[in-house]
């Protein structure tokens, strides 16, 4: 059972994001980076599939600058077999379409039964790369996956996915793209022995030229801005409770327009 896991490095969820003074991006200094949590579910699921079939391979595919090797190495420490690190100025902060192109080019150079993507990355929240990747590779996709069962002959999978208010179970032929949703599994720790073993596992470095692609962005980000600060609340003071209640209802209806 061979899985290709597309993994992105993102700022830690606890990071306080600040927009830089030019409004062209966020302040990256002092940020702690982690594996995108949805991608961590992917890594775990790929490892479980390999363990279930007792053979196979888990390959991690990441696009990003030098700092991303730490995340790849973490996935290798969890048990993945090797990494592919696409590190190219033209791709490192590209739009989802360019990213998907690069992922597709890299994917076409390896063997896989399943490609896992997180259903979205928690930094830019596009949730597009996985779907575009499937389209570019001309293979089926199932999004928001919470359970995966691959048939013994690895030709199809029964997959459970989140839908509004419940679950949908679908059958999909392999190879396919699955995008991981919370609830898929509980990712394991990168154990100490795993961390040491990971040091010796290979990470292939690739550039856009190695993949034979030229990046052509379809999306241009114009400006980043912080949400407006919350305004101070209004206090109803010095009123008798019945009058205050009436006034509150009036304000909620006419000013806040929430009732």
């Amino acid at each position: 059972m061979k899985s290709l896991v597309c993994m992105k490095q993102v700022p830690d969820t606890e990071t306080q994001i600040k927009v830089n003074s030019q409004g062209t991006g966020i302040v990256t200094e002092g940020i702690k980076y982690i594996i995108n949590p949805y991608d961590e579910f992917s890594v775990e699921e790929a490892l479980r599939l390999k363990e279930k079939f007792k053979q196979g391979e888990v390959v991690i595919l990441t696009i990003g600058p030098d700092r991303c090797t730490e995340s790849i190495r973490t996935a290798l420490a969890m048990g993945a077999d090797k990494g592919i690190h696409i590190n190219d100025e033209s791709l490192n902060s590209a739009d989802p379409f360019v990213v998907a192109q690069a992922l597709a080019a890299a994917a076409s150079q390896v063997d896989y039964n399943v490609i896992f993507c997180g259903h979205r990355a928690i930094d830019d929240d596009f949730a597009e790369a996985g779907a575009m990747l499937a389209e570019l590779l001309q293979i089926p996709q199932v999004t928001l996956v919470t359970k995966v069962e691959v048939s013994d002959d690895k030709t199809k999978a029964i997959v459970e996915r989140d839908v509004e208010g419940g679950k949908e179970t679908v059958e999909v032929s392999l190879p396919c793209v699955l995008t991981s949703q919370k609830g898929l599994n509980e990712p394991r720790y990168a154990s100490l022995p795993g961390i040491m073993k990971a040091k010796k596992k290979p990470i292939d470095k690739k550039t856009a030229a190695d993949l034979g692609i030229t990046a052509e962005a379809r999306l241009e980000s114009r400006e980043y801005s912080m949400p407006p600060e919350r305004k101070a609340g209004k206090k109803l003071e010095g009123m008798e409770p019945p009058d205050a209640a009436k006034e509150l209802v009036r304000l909620l209806r006419n000013e806040a327009k929430v009732i």
Partner: peptide, 8 residues
């Protein structure tokens, strides 16, 4: 390896 260990 120390950074990864710290996260673990």
């Amino acid at each position: 390896s120390h950074h990864i260990l710290r996260q673990t």
